[in-house]
């Protein structure tokens, strides 16, 4: 029984990391229809930003989060302004362009910072475990779970409770008509892209104490993020959240029954079966394009 509880917690922890990474991607895809293959590199930039801030100012990564968010969002904003904005009518070219941007970002970091894995210290006050009976939970992982829920709630509020969110939803529904009402769709897109990138950056900063910080770390993560977005239904925040939990728990369950390698295969096979029967994901959005 304890083993199962611990494994459920492991699944939740994986889900929270997946959610943090996938949320930005889901928003960018949902709002703009841009398949952003550089998303993993935004995660990597966040990790390196956290490393740089910690190394040069001694700040804890939790304190550094707002700065990381702003820095990576700025990079995202620039990339949107310079490249992605010109390609909105050519979706296939955006895939290629963002992939190229990803390579450029990765190699830039490799050239400037070096290829070796960087050490980022986890926050002191979150070290240790919380134990309830046989259930042992790492405090840091607990923190990431709650933080990802907060980010999810914040994003939801941004989309539904603010003027920006209203404009964004209007642009998603019909760009031309929104522009007739005086909404600057271009700016909305830029800010959305920057927000998505910033979220990826925070995700990157948060996983540094657990993972290895290297220039190629984003490549594997972006695949997981796409799995979450596809299973959840393109552009749906609720979908991304439930898909993250589903994939995290399924991975944990299969890892317990077999091992991590077979678990991964089983999850991927499960996703193939799922999209066979629900090709638009669990919660497809019903907007017209």
């Amino acid at each position: 029984m304890d083993a199962i509880l611990n494994q459920i917690f492991a699944g939740l922890s994986m889900a929270s990391i997946l959610l943090m990474i996938a949320l930005g991607l889901a928003i960018i895809y949902g709002a703009m229809g841009v398949i952003n293959l550089a998303h993993g590199e935004f995660v990597m930039l966040g990790a390196y930003a956290a490393w740089a801030i910690q190394t040069y100012t001694g700040m804890s990564i939790i304190m550094a989060l707002p700065f990381v968010f702003v820095a990576v969002a700025l990079v995202g904003w620039l990339i949107e302004k310079i490249i992605v904005q010109r390609l909105y009518h050519r979706p296939l070219d955006t895939i290629l362009a963002t992939w190229g941007i990803g390579i450029i970002l990765q190699q830039t970091v490799r050239l400037l910072v070096g290829a070796e894995s960087r050490f980022v210290k986890g926050p002191e006050f979150l070290s240790g475990n919380t134990q309830i009976g046989g259930l042992i939970m790492s405090n840091y992982r607990l923190f990431v779970i709650f933080f990802s829920l907060a980010v999810l709630a914040g994003t939801w509020a941004l989309m539904t409770r603010t003027e920006f969110g209203m404009k964004l939803r209007a642009v998603i529904q019909n760009r031309q008509i929104s522009e007739c009402y005086g909404i600057e769709a271009k700016n909305i897109y830029s800010v959305t892209f920057a927000y998505g990138a910033g979220l990826a950056g925070i995700a990157g900063a948060l996983i540094t104490p657990l993972f290895s910080t290297i220039p190629t770390m984003g490549t594997g993560l972006v695949v997981d993020a796409f799995l979450v977005v596809i299973v959840g239904g393109l552009g749906s925040i609720l979908g991304a959240a439930s898909a993250a939990v589903l994939i995290g728990e399924a991975t944990a369950l299969f890892s317990m029954l077999f091992n991590d390698t077979l678990g991964r295969i089983a999850v991927l096979a499960g996703i193939i079966v799922l999209i066979r029967f629900r090709p638009r994901g669990l919660f497809p959005s019903n907007t017209r394009r």
Binding site: N6, Q7, A10, S13, L210, A252, D260
Partner: peptide
């Protein structure tokens, strides 16, 4: 390149 060892650590 596997990076999440929570299941392994539980085991």
């Amino acid at each position: 390149g596997h990076s999440d060892f929570s299941s392994v650590i539980n085991r």
